[in-house]
Amino acid sequence: MANARLGEALRLLGIDPPAGRVYLALLELAPAPLSAIGEAAGLDGAGLAAAYGELVDAGLASAAVAGADVVAPVPPAAGLEILARHRAAELEESRITVGGAFESFRRQRLAAYNDNLVEVVTGDAVGPRMRHAWASAREQIRQLDSPPYFPLPGATDDALATLARGVTQRVVYSRASLEVPGQLETAIEPCIEAGEQARVTPAVPVKLVIIDEAYALVSLSIREADVHNTMLVVQPCGLLSALVALFEQTWQAALPLHGRATRPAGLTSADRRLLRLLAGGASDEVVARELGVSRRTFFRRLQILMARLGAENRFQMGSQAQRLGWL
């Protein structure tokens, strides 16, 4: 049993079985003539020479007397140290070889599929791809919203249907979103009332929609080049992770717009819209236009709301409205 365990240990160290048998014979008979060692190990001639040479190379055996046929094992501490260094060098070489092979595979793989990591969608294909994105969401949609908007009939209905399926929807709107004529009343507020978690910020860094953890839609359209209607579809990769982090950072810095809050008695939908527009930084002219009233009427409503909230200025009014959930 001890011989078997020693033979297995030598094999794990890289010693072939014939050389292992010679080493066992050395431990039992040495110092002794090499021929006697070979006879005990069942080897002779070229086979014995090769096996014994392997032990010498590994630092486990040497001639007992210089120039004589008598052989003996080397003290194992020295021999195993040499062998361990050889094995460590071989393992390092193997690690480098395997790592290089995998890196080559990775480069070839990326070269073959690189086009699928970021897809460019343009023109008439943008609309259907956006509608498919909303329909494909299973857990959550994260969005940074800002004009210009791609003309997509039924976009609000798609968002409402997604919310009705129980998909969490978090949206950060830019101030410009609230200032688009009719956008707050017809698109933003219905989604907020349906359960969308909405926030507002002066500007968003990019127009972005993230579907679950699956992919992201990034709009390349800007006011000066809106005619291009170009969008990127980003699949899971480092860029998608960066876009997720960008959304979360923007979300944390934005001002909440509450939905489904209990509306205080006497607070009309127009009053809440007024508060939301002001919270988003809209100008007086824009607020009056969105409410469909004159500037004089707008200021009168503003004074009434400030009085109800006990605020002496607009900043205090916004803080109080936020605290009470009026937004």
Rank of each mutant, 00 (worst) to 15 (best):
M1C: 05
A2S: 10
G7Q: 11
A9E: 13
L12T: 12
G14L: 07
G20S: 07
Y23P: 12
A25W: 01
A25I: 03
L26I: 06
L29E: 08
A30V: 03
S35M: 00
E39V: 04
L48S: 10
A49V: 13
A51K: 02
A51V: 06
A51N: 01
Y52I: 05
G53F: 00
V56R: 01
V56M: 03
V56A: 07
L60S: 09
A61L: 02
A66L: 13
G67S: 12
V70I: 14
V71A: 04
A72P: 03
P73W: 05
P75R: 02
A77T: 15
E90K: 08
V98M: 08
A101G: 12
R106N: 10
R106S: 12
R106L: 15
L117C: 01
V118N: 03
A125L: 11
P128F: 03
H132S: 15
A137R: 01
Q143I: 11
D145S: 10
P151L: 10
P153I: 11
A161D: 14
A164E: 14
R165M: 08
T168C: 01
V172W: 05
R175C: 13
L178I: 10
P181E: 09
L184E: 07
P190T: 12
I192W: 02
K207V: 12
L208W: 02
Y215P: 12
L220Y: 05
R223Q: 14
H228M: 14
T230C: 13
M231A: 05
M231K: 03
L232W: 02
P236A: 09
A242G: 08
A242P: 00
F247M: 06
W251Q: 04
A253D: 12
A253S: 13
A254N: 09
T268K: 01
L278D: 09
G280Y: 01
A282E: 10
A288M: 06
E290V: 13
E290S: 10
L291C: 06
G292P: 02
R295N: 07
F299L: 08
I304Q: 07
R308Y: 03
L309P: 05
L309Q: 10
A311M: 09
M317C: 11
Q322M: 12
G325R: 06
